[in-house]
Amino acid sequence: MNNLKTTKLNKIIDKVVSNIYLLMTLISASFMLIIIIFILFKGLSPFMSNYQYGVVNFLDFLFGTQYRPDMGIYGVGFIIINTLVSALLALSIAFPISVLTALFVVKIAPQRLSEFMKVVIDLLASIPSIVYGVFAAGIITKFTMTIASMLGVQTYGGTSLLSVVILLAIMIFPTITSISISSISSVSEDLQHASLALGATKVQTNFKVVLLSAKQGIFAGAILGVGRAFGEATAVSMVAGNKMFGPTFGLFNTTRTLTSTMIAGLKETSGLDYDIRFSIGLVLLIIILITNFGLNFIKNKVGKTHEKN
């Protein structure tokens, strides 16, 4: 009789506990919903006709080329382009260096050197973004100024698109590298042996066979890296300069990204100036979503063609 009782009790405990697990998961997942709802709600409010601080025209906002709070002009069109340009440039610098470093760590370096490199990459990954910001404001701006004076170009004391790009490249490098390291490590040994047996040198095998097989994983790393480049706020705000109009294509011009706009001049807690940051946040989320979809789409297409081959 006792056994029956404990089994029944256990069954009840089981049900209760598994419902608790479900509840916790629902809480976690619901934050996504909360974020979407609030950003949508507060972000769209300046464009609604009953907005209390003066309605902002939505099209002017989305496609505007000037952002001047002092004159009440809020256009983020050029800021979107700036954000895309800086993130993609940073990716194009960081990507080759990351992949080559990952290849080096997994395949080419001797054991101890490989361990050392992993520690270096881990360290770079765990440095807080504010420290990168201090570093950027100190050294990267001076570096940009030196290059600019060599080319005979004037800068705004080093704050420029180039500084932002270098900073972002350094910050996303560890992300892409660690994921590439995992991908490259999981390329099957048989494939590599087969390649060597067919007469290819080790280097040829590394570059042609291993890298191609790890393509999917490396690509995923790049997507993550770009995501980080889009979202970086405090460090970028220290070297961007926050230009009032744009878009900026000149490497030595000051620039402005969505995140640096959201964090700059944060003093009020009410008013149009404050609420518009939610709208910019909404734009940022949408950009990240679109880029993620687009890149994932390309990744899957590349994967399919690779499989066919």
Binding site: F31, M32, F38, K42, G231, M262, R277, F278, L284
Partner: peptide, 25 residues
Amino acid sequence: QLLSVSIETLAGVPSIIYGLVGITV
């Protein structure tokens, strides 16, 4: 699947958005 995807997407949201939501919600 929906739960899983929602939680994974949370990882891709920049932290500044969390700040905005935090101060309102």
